[in-house]
């Protein structure tokens, strides 16, 4: 069976690598991932040069569909921020021939780690409470850094550790515990079917 090429765009290589690592375990027989733009930071994602590069890459690489990952840097109540970022996705989706599916991280990618916190607790020997709603954690990355630093100052969580953690997160547990991620997975499955 020919594997489908799925494009990836994110704020940071750690984000795209993390989502790739998370999905590839379950879907490796059906899909493979290709980053459409490399080495771009979130604050460059809406400038004209990046958008034009994206158009060129989309046309050249012809992915089946594209996963667009972005951090909200806010909580679900922040409707103004959600409005701005949804508009941004709509504009980028036009460049992608409307094949984009959006993974909006509430606050930031690390919130998803809280949806399956056992994995982090085991890796960093922390005792972060389970069953917290990942969509209501303000500055989750900061909390992970702080808690890991308290256990071992020399093994503090860093953004670059995320891909290794996401390799071990349970996709089904994340979908169960995080509404936004569940919506993303529904869209992902629908595109594949």
């Amino acid at each position: 069976m020919t594997k489908l090429k799925i494009g990836l765009i994110g704020e940071d290589p750690n984000d795209t690598n993390s989502i790739q690592n998370l999905l590839i375990r379950k879907y490796s027989e059906k899909v493979y991932f290709k980053k459409l733009i490399r080495n771009i930071k979130g604050f460059y994602l809406d400038n004209p040069k990046t958008l034009r590069s994206l158009e060129i890459e989309f046309e050249d690489q012809k992915p089946f569909f594209v996963i667009v990952i972005r951090d909200l840097d806010g909580l679900p109540e922040d409707s103004a921020k959600i409005g701005v970022i949804t508009n941004w996705f709509d504009s980028i989706n036009k460049k992608l021939n409307n094949t984009g599916i959006f993974l909006l991280n509430i606050f930031e990618l690390e919130a998803l780690i809280f949806a399956n916190i056992d994995v982090f607790n085991k890796a960093y020997k922390t005792k972060i409470k389970q069953n917290r709603n990942p969509m209501y954690i303000k500055e989750p990355k900061e909390e992970l850094m702080r808690k890991s630093r308290q256990v071992n100052i020399k093994k503090e969580y860093e953004e670059s550790h995320a891909p290794a953690i996401f390799e071990k997160l349970d996709l089904d547990v994340l979908a169960k515990n995080c509404l936004y991620f569940r919506q993303f997975m529904d869209a992902f499955e629908k595109q594949l079917s």
Partner: peptide
Amino acid sequence: KANVYMKEVGY
């Protein structure tokens, strides 16, 4: 000016 470059021109 740097902000304009980052937002409207490129990098």
